[in-house]
């Protein structure tokens, strides 16, 4: 309680200020909520209702149907795309964490020539846009037969997720109490043992934050799926929605239901693990 309550409440100017503050907050909250709410309500309305009246009418005249979800999942194959999203996302979340943790430990606790250079290089890569890399990587994938394979997209996401993973994990691991690591070294433990028995368990909060970020980022990825998968049968939900838009620009009942199928998983992750989300953002910075 700082801005508002810390000041004397009596004066009319202060009261007006507080009313204004609440007004702005509520208004912004509504502006942020209404766009999603509209599509959400629409996903439960029949196509004829959608064509006949605006979604806000459905808030009064309750007439809802599950049919859109049924149609988009079965007839339009979104159930299959959902499965693809999972197949793509789970390994694409685990691999970069493993690779990034190994590198993060080395950068934080081992002394060797070129360490600072490598760390700064990784920081620079955080900023490099993927647009710079797509054509050469795709050519490489064509040569090795990786285009259109799940293995290929796992590799892509592992590599593209790495700068952020190394950055976040290196910073967290560097803050771990050095006494544990040094005394294990004195006792003759191997670096791999220290890494797996001491560093990884102590880094669980950072690993969890990173896992959530990477999971949501990969689940929501459209561009890499379009470029490296190319095959509709292997598309994740994002790419499936995009092709639905291409063919049927105004089939709102399917677009709405399909979008909420795609959103359901990250929303669930967010509500279940909100704490880690916020911590990851405030500690780790931004991915992008």
């Amino acid at each position: 309680m700082r801005t508002a309550a810390a000041y004397p409440l009596r004066s009319p100017a202060r009261i007006a200020g507080r009313v204004l503050a609440h007004g702005i907050l509520v208004l912004l909250g509504l502006v942020w909520l209404v766009p999603s709410l509209g599509l959400f309500v629409t996903s439960w309305r029949s196509p004829s209702d959608i064509a006949a009246s605006g979604w806000w009418n459905a808030l009064v005249e309750w007439r809802y149907t599950l049919a859109n979800y049924g149609e988009v999942l079965s007839a339009r194959g979104f159930a299959n795309n959902f499965l693809n999203s999972l197949i793509i996302t789970v390994p694409s979340t685990l691999f970069p964490i493993a690779v990034g943790a190994l590198a993060g430990y080395a950068l934080a606790w081992m002394r060797f020539r070129g360490r600072d250079f490598i760390y700064l290089g990784v920081m620079a890569l955080l900023v490099v846009p993927l647009q710079l890399t797509w054509v050469p990587v795709l050519r490489l994938f064509n040569t090795f037969g990786l285009t259109g394979t799940f293995a290929g997209i796992w590799l892509v996401h592992t590599a593209f997720g790495l700068p952020f993973a190394v950055f976040l994990l290196r910073n967290f691991i560097a803050e771990l109490p050095g006494a544990f690591i040094e005394s294990a070294r004195v006792d003759g433990a191997s670096e791999l043992m220290i890494f797996s028995r001491i560093v990884l368990p102590l880094s669980l909060p950072a690993l969890a934050s990173l896992a959530i970020f990477q999971f949501v980022w990969v689940w929501n990825d459209l561009m890499n799926a379009l470029i490296f998968l190319q095959i509709r049968d292997k598309y994740p939900l994002t790419a499936a929605i995009q092709s639905l838009l291409g063919q049927f620009g105004s089939e709102w009942h399917l677009l709405a239901a399909g979008s909420f199928v795609a959103m359901s998983v990250p929303l669930l992750v967010f509500f279940a693990l909100q704490r880690y989300f916020v911590r990851g953002i405030t500690v780790g910075g931004v991915k992008g």
Binding site: W32, L222, T238, S259, M263, P266, F270
Partner: peptide
């Protein structure tokens, strides 16, 4: 409410 859009895909 303000943070939620960060979680969904740009596609959605």
């Amino acid at each position: 409410i303000i943070f939620l859009p960060m979680v969904i895909s740009a596609t959605a």
